[in-house]
Simulated assay, not measured.
Amino acid sequence: MPANTAPTRRRLTREQRARQLLDVAWTLVGEEGTDALTLGRLAEAAGVTKPVAYDHFVTRNGLLAALYDDYDGRQTAVFNDRIGNARARLADRAAAIASGYIDCVLSQGSEVQGILAALVGAPELYEVRRRYQQDFIDHCAAWLGPFATGGTLPVAARWAILGAAETLSEGVAAGALDKADAEAELQRLIVATVKRR
């Protein structure tokens, strides 16, 4: 057998490596908790060197912010899918938003809450969370604006919907609220908020 026939490993692109590292990080957070997640631990679990992990995320806060951003990307995809499949009626759009928001929070549950807790006070958290909030209220303008008087849902109303969605989702994730009850309440709140405009 010639010496150069040893199996070779395919090199991942930067994007593929980042995806791999995020997937491994989600697994670590789920199995060991956020406190155990370091760039060194991530590199070990992913089978890469520490410099590879540091090259992608720079700091632990950078990794946590990337995880939150990854969660937000999946949440946006769920919303877009649900809204795309909902009939163009206010009640249907409100139901899609309510179920989509709560399902997304439940899909990551304590992991996302742990990431947020670990990032408290970090500039990375403010930037990522603010971008997520702005994206959500901008989407609410497009999803719900056509049903509001004058075709525009005021910014304050969109922030109110976001606040209710966050609070009800946290209640469900904590086991304090039934999921169906929270979805129905959020749907009612969205419809009432839009109809008042």
Rank of each mutant, 00 (worst) to 15 (best):
D72E: 06
R87H: 12
P146K: 13
D178E: 12
D55F: 08
A192F: 05
E44Y: 10
A192Y: 03
E31P: 02
D138F: 03
A25L: 13
M1L: 09
A94E: 10
L106A: 10
L39F: 11
G100P: 15
D181W: 05
R41C: 08
G47V: 01
A122E: 13
W26Y: 12
L28F: 08
A66G: 15
G150K: 02
G145R: 01
R93W: 10
L106D: 04
A91K: 10
G151L: 10
L67E: 10
E183T: 12
R89E: 15
D138Q: 07
F147S: 06
L21N: 01
A65P: 00
L116Y: 11
G40L: 01
A165F: 00
A94K: 10
K179V: 06
Y132C: 12
V128E: 10
Y101R: 05
P154Q: 00
G121R: 08
P146E: 13
G114V: 09
V172N: 06
R17N: 00
G30E: 09
E44R: 09
R14W: 00
R158W: 07
P2N: 01
L21P: 02
E183V: 11
P7I: 10
G100L: 00
E44F: 14
A118S: 05
V58D: 11
Y68S: 04
R74C: 12
A46K: 02
